[in-house]
Simulated assay, not measured.
Amino acid sequence: MMLSKSARIWLRLAMVAGLGVIYVPLLVVLIGSFNSSTTFSWPPSGLTGHWWSVTLHNTGVRSALWTSVKAGLAATAVALLLGTMLAFAVQRYRFFGRGTVSLLVVLPIALPGIVTGIALNNAFRTVLDPLGIKLGLFTVIVGHATFCIVVVFNNTQARLRRLGASMEEASADLGADTFQTFRYVTFPLMRSALLAGGLLAFALSFDEIIVTTFTAGAGVETLPIWIFNNLFRPGQAPVVNVVAAALIVLSIVPIYLAQRLSGDDAKLI
């Protein structure tokens, strides 16, 4: 499609404006992490790296970081297992209610986080409390897995759709059993899609706050929850800025790697 010079200029301006709305606030947070002031003042009264050192030695931050990592890794593992199995079932087999199952798997990521959080909180208190299982890290992992499964499911199903079943059928014709076919044919072709889905799932879990608020209970504090709890405490503004800046960087890495993996695979298929 050919566009006039003025149309191209307006499109570029719109693109710059859209990117500015997204990334200028993030840039403000990054600069604020070096602000010498103990408040969220702008512009910075001075620049210093002191608060990064303070944050590094903050036991609350380190504990919250480790909790987020544990929850993210566990939720990603659950999502990889269940999301992959669901994708294979929906994409490789025909059965009654197949479309409904696909819709139900994707639905959690479309629901508002607060709705999911309230529903999970009620379910945990109704089902798990009588069994002696209280809200804690386990319930956080289950809550995160509900939407992490969707990311893995979508990635895996998209790859299976592009691959088709011809290679697996050829492997079976050559005498390989189901597990040999999966090990030597299916898994190598699916490996990068699973890795990309796992990275995105971990990034989603690591940054989640709304569902975590309703499923964590007392004594479990992830990094986003720590930020929220310390946001308005006196003298904590610089540390909050540093943690937020670190979260931005940590979130970019898995998303960038997932995009590169997905892009490279698209060129090979």
Rank of each mutant, 00 (worst) to 15 (best):
1 M>N: 11
10 W>P: 04
10 W>E: 14
13 L>R: 03
18 G>W: 05
21 V>D: 05
22 I>F: 11
25 P>W: 10
26 L>N: 07
31 I>M: 05
32 G>R: 00
35 N>F: 09
44 P>W: 13
47 L>I: 08
50 H>P: 00
51 W>R: 02
51 W>D: 02
51 W>K: 02
52 W>M: 09
55 T>S: 02
56 L>I: 13
57 H>P: 07
58 N>L: 02
61 V>A: 12
61 V>L: 10
64 A>Y: 14
66 W>S: 06
66 W>K: 08
69 V>G: 02
70 K>F: 12
76 T>C: 00
78 V>Y: 06
81 L>E: 14
84 T>Y: 08
89 A>R: 09
92 R>C: 12
95 F>L: 13
97 G>C: 03
97 G>H: 01
102 S>Q: 05
105 V>R: 07
109 I>C: 05
109 I>N: 11
110 A>Y: 08
112 P>W: 10
112 P>G: 05
113 G>D: 03
114 I>M: 07
114 I>C: 04
119 A>N: 06
124 F>A: 04
134 K>Q: 06
134 K>L: 01
135 L>T: 03
139 T>F: 08
147 F>E: 10
155 N>D: 05
157 Q>L: 12
165 A>C: 08
166 S>E: 09
166 S>Y: 03
172 A>Q: 03
173 D>M: 06
177 D>H: 05
178 T>R: 15
183 R>L: 08
183 R>Y: 07
184 Y>K: 12
184 Y>C: 13
185 V>N: 01
186 T>E: 13
188 P>I: 10
189 L>C: 11
191 R>L: 11
193 A>P: 00
194 L>W: 02
196 A>Y: 04
200 L>Y: 02
203 A>C: 01
205 S>W: 07
210 I>F: 13
212 T>A: 07
219 G>E: 10
222 T>H: 03
223 L>C: 06
225 I>V: 11
226 W>D: 01
231 L>C: 08
231 L>G: 05
232 F>C: 03
232 F>A: 12
233 R>E: 13
234 P>Y: 07
238 P>W: 07
248 I>H: 09
253 V>Y: 06
255 I>K: 02
255 I>F: 04
261 L>S: 02
265 D>R: 13
265 D>W: 11
267 K>Q: 15
